[in-house]
Amino acid sequence: MAKALHRLANPARFLRIASPLLPWIAAGAAVCGGLGLWFGLVGSPPDYQQGDAARIMYVHVPAAWNALAGYAGLAVASAIALVWRHPLALVAARCIAPIGACFTVIAIATGSIWGHPMWGTWWVWDARLTSVVVLLFLYLGYIALLHAFDEQETGERAATVLALIGAVNLPVIKFSVDWWNTLHQPASILRFGGPSIDPAMLLPLMLMAGGFTLLFAYLVIIRMQTELARRRVMALRRAALAVSQPGDA
């Protein structure tokens, strides 16, 4: 019983801290996203090579960054869950996965739309594009494993192991454009020698990246609130069942 109370303590503290932050995070996401849209679509010049098609960058790149950062978060939460058995870590990991998968789908879809006019193809299997598809399957595999077993804990353990193994893919995605010849161009922002992007275009990119990241955080908190409520409902139902059938316990 004492252990069960202890387990509740941290999620309760999490909710106490995170819930009041939610409106601020939502407002920040809306402001960054709104300004980002304005500067991205209106207040920035077209690219000297790609013209207005380069504006797809302002949704494609932030989505891809968040897909990667989300997986990093999923892997870190899984490591914490595995080593320290922190109950909140599993909840966080479980809630990050579907959001990360959605951001990955956005990155792939917008990248494909961008590729058609610029590269001359919707899709190629180069190292960058392939490794991002692997990322999507890691997210989907994680979600599938969570629900693949009758026993919730078995599914969580299997999914946690997958999340940690899949972390190998993160450096592969990041450096694929440097290690192997790819159709995808090298990094513009996170690279030695500083960004190779004009400040007028860097501004909307950073605003959108901030907006996407805050939206990601907002969604994670909402889903964690939901998941913690679900766990409480399950616990209460189990307790009610134990009272009505005392011999069972």
């Binding site: 010049p45 077209p46 690219d47 000297y48 090579q49 790609q50 380069a54 960058m57 610029m118 590269w119 001359g120 193809t121 190629v124 159709l183 161009q185 090298p186 990094a187 513009s188 690279r191 190779s196 992007i197 004009d198 007028a200 275009m201």
Partner: peptide, 18 residues
């Protein structure tokens, strides 16, 4: 049989490039 374009990592307005 097929030609694909590859763009570089530089983004700038036309005036800056000029």
């Amino acid at each position: 049989t097929e030609v694909l374009a590859r763009h570089d990592e530089n983004y700038m307005p036309k005036e800056v490039a000029d």
